[in-house]
Design a binder for these strands. Structure first.
Length: 499
RNA sequence: GGGCCCCUAACUCAACGGUAGAGUAUCGGCCUUUUAAGCCGAGAGUUGUGGGUUCGAAUCCCACGGGGCCCA
C-alpha cells in the first residue's frame, strides 16, 4: 500500500475505516449536559464526584500508547479528556486511530485533577459526532496561567476573511469580537427601548434613493418592470414615520453604497438611525454622549477607550467645535463660501479640485484633509455649512449654516445628526439644487426629486432631531480592531477565482 | 485613481543569483497522568500565474491575479 500524504485523503481513509467498523461518522444527536467553562468552574476536589457530558472539536491529541490526552473545545472554552484503553475497552479506544484534529466528538465521564493539576474528564464514553475532512490551521494553543499562548497561528488576513468559518473555529479572539458586536447592538436596543423608541423596518428596495450622498446599487424588479435601488440610508422613510405620528423611531439595518473598499468602508454596512419628534440637535449631543459613555462602560468598565495604541477618555461633556472655526484654525479663509472663493483657497493650500466638485464637496475635502486627522478625542463638530447638509434645518443665527453635528473619535466620524428640515418649500429647493448638481456630474447627488417624501412633509412633520450611527465603525473603536473587515463576519471581497 | 509591501510544504517562517530547509501538522514505530509531551523513522513543494534576462532564477526585470498598508 502506498503511503498517502494528502491530508484530505488521509481523513477520507479514516472516515472509510470508521464506516467499516460500523460507526456512523455523522450521527444525528448527542445529548450535551455540560460545557467546558462551567465544568472547570464547578470542580473542587476528587472527593465530590462530578459527571460530565460534553461535545466539541478535538483541538489537540497526545497519545501515549495505552492512554491518550485530548483537548476538546466548545463555545465556552477547552477541557482536557483522558482516555485509557483498560477503561474504555479495546474497540472504543481504537477510535483514536481514526481521530483527527478538528473532529467533533462527544465525551462522557468523571472529572478529576491530573498529576500536573489540570481538571480533566476521565472518559467512559467517546463518540465521533462529525468527521472533519479538511485540516483546520489549528496551530498550537496552550492555556497558561490566565493568558492562552498561541503558536503558528494563521496570519494571512485574506484567509481569515474568505474562510471566516475556519478563522472563527481557530481564533477565540475573533469569536470574541463578534460576541462584543452583539453586546453593542443589544446595548443600543435596550438604551432606545427604555427611552420609548419604537423599532421599525423600512424598505431596502427603494424607487428613489436619498438621505445621504453616495452612489447606489441598482437592481430591477421583474414583475413591476421598474428600477429599484438598494438604500443608501434609512433617513427619508424614518421621517415619514415621524409624519405619521410615531414620535420616536429607530432602525438598525444594512445600508448599501456602491463605492470603494478600505479599512473604514464596506459596500454593505450596518447603520443605526433614530428620530425623535420635538427634539433638536442639542438634545442629541447629550444622547450621543450618554450612548457612547454607556457603551464604553459596558465593554470596558470605565471611561477610557483605547484604539490602535491611542487612548482617550470619553467622559462628558465633549467639546463642541464649529465647522468653520475648525477650518479657519487650520488656515482656511472661510469669509466667502462661494464655490469660486473656496476653489481659490483649495488651490492656495495645494489641494486638487475636480471641475464637477461643488462648494459642498470642496468644503468636505478641505475638512477631511486639514481637520479630521487631528480629532483624536471625543468631539462634536457642529454647525456645518448648509451646502453640505441638504436635509438639515437652517441655523437661526446664520443662514449659511445648519443645526448639525458630527461626532468624532480617533480622527474618524462615527455619528451624524441634525435638527431635521421640516419646511417642505425649503426641502424642495434643496432637492432641486441636488438634481442640478447631479446634472453637472456629481455622481453622489440624487438625480430626481423625491416627490413622495415632499408630499409627506407637506402633511406636516413636527420639529425633529435625527442621528445616524455607523455600527461597524463604532464596533471597531470599542473592540480595538484595525479594519472594518475585522468586525464584519463576511466582508465584501473580490470573488475567488473558479468559484 | 497614485505609491509602497507581501504571496515558498497543510500552518508559521528560512534560504535573497549556484543542490529549496526548519518547527508544527501528517504518516509508521515505542510509550498507562501528558500538556508547545517525549524518543526513533518517513513522506510532503510546478516557490501565486505567465513571460523575459542569465550557463544557472524562489532570488533580478516586466505583465497579470490575489492580499495588506499609506495617500487621493
Amino acid at each position: 500500500m502506498s503511503v498517502e500524504t494528502n491530508p484530505q485523503a488521509v481523513r477520507r481513509d479514516k472516515l472509510a475505516a470508521l464506516e467499516e467498523r460500523g460507526i456512523d461518522p455523522y450521527p444525528a444527536r448527542w445529548r450535551v449536559d455540560d460545557h467546558a467553562a462551567s465544568l472547570l468552574e464547578a470542580f473542587r476536589d476528587d472527593a465530590e464526584p462530578i459527571t460530565a457530558r460534553v461535545a466539541g472539536r478535538v483541538v489537540s491529541i497526545r497519545s501515549h500508547g495505552k492512554t491518550a490526552f485530548l483537548h476538546v473545545a466548545d463555545a465556552t472554552g477547552r477541557i482536557q479528556v483522558y482516555l485509557r484503553r483498560d477503561e474504555l475497552g479495546e474497540k472504543t479506544f481504537a477510535l483514536l486511530d481514526c481521530l483527527d484534529l478538528g473532529d467533533f466528538v462527544g465525551v462522557a465521564g468523571q472529572l478529576f485533577r491530573t498529576r500536573t493539576g489540570e481538571v480533566t474528564i476521565r472518559a467512559t464514553e467517546i463518540v465521533v459526532l462529525a468527521k472533519s475532512l479538511r485540516p483546520l490551521p489549528l496551530g498550537k494553543v496552550v492555556e497558561g496561567e490566565g493568558e492562552a499562548r498561541a503558536y503558528h497561528q494563521v496570519a494571512d488576513q485574506e484567509f481569515r476573511y474568505r474562510q471566516r468559518y475556519a478563522d472563527l473555529a481557530v481564533h477565540s479572539e475573533s469569536r470574541e469580537v463578534f460576541a462584543d458586536r452583539a453586546r453593542i447592538v443589544r446595548f443600543l436596543r435596550n438604551f432606545l427601548d427604555q427611552r420609548g423608541f419604537l423599532e421599525v423596518e423600512t424598505p431596502v428596495l427603494q424607487p428613489v434613493y436619498g438621505g445621504a450622498a453616495a452612489r447606489p446599487f441598482t437592481t430591477h424588479h421583474n414583475a413591476l418592470d421598474s428600477t429599484l435601488y438598494l438604500r443608501i440610508a434609512d433617513e427619508l422613510y424614518l421621517k415619514r414615520c415621524i409624519v405619521g405620528g410615531l414620535e420616536r423611531v429607530y432602525e438598525i439595518a444594512k445600508d448599501f453604497r456602491n463605492e470603494g473598499i478600505d479599512r473604514f468602508h464596506n459596500p454593505e454596512f450596518t447603520m443605526l438611525e433614530l428620530y425623535q419628534a420635538y427634539a433638536d440637535y442639542l438634545d442629541f449631543m447629550e444622547l450621543a454622549e450618554e450612548m457612547l459613555v454607556g457603551l464604553v462602560e459596558e465593554l470596558h468598565g470605565g471611561t477610557q477607550l483605547t484604539f490602535q495604541g491611542g487612548t482617550v477618555d470619553v467622559s462628558r461633556p465633549w467639546p463642541r467645535l464649529p465647522f468653520l472655526d475648525a477650518l479657519a484654525d487650520a488656515g482656511v479663509d472661510v469669509s466667502d463660501l462661494s464655490r469660486a472663493a473656496l476653489a481659490g483657497e483649495a488651490a492656495r493650500l495645494g489641494i486638487d479640485i475636480a471641475p464637477e466638485e461643488g462648494a459642498g464637496r470642496i468644503l468636505d475635502g478641505l475638512f477631511s484633509r486639514l481637520v479630521e486627522p487631528g480629532l483624536e478625542g471625543p468631539v462634536f463638530v457642529i454647525d456645518h455649512p448648509a451646502v453640505l447638509s441638504p436635509l438639515a434645518k437652517a441655523h437661526p443665527r446664520d443662514p449659511r449654516l445648519v443645526e448639525r453635528f458630527e461626532a468624532y473619535l480617533f480622527g474618524s466620524e462615527w455619528a451624524n445628526a441634525f435638527s431635521e428640515l421640516n419646511d417642505p418649500r425649503e426641502q424642495r429647493k434643496r432637492f432641486e439644487a441636488q438634481v442640478l448638481q447631479a446634472a453637472e456630474g456629481d455622481e453622489e447627488a440624487p438625480n430626481v426629486v423625491d416627490e413622495d417624501f415632499l408630499r409627506a412633509l407637506e402633511y406636516g412633520m413636527p420639529p425633529t432631531a435625527g442621528i445616524g450611527i455607523g455600527i461597524d465603525r463604532l464596533t471597531m473603536f470599542l473592540t480595538d480592531q484595525a479594519s472594518i473587515r475585522d468586525v464584519i463576519l463576511f466582508p465584501t471581497l473580490r470573488p475567488e477565482e473558479g468559484s
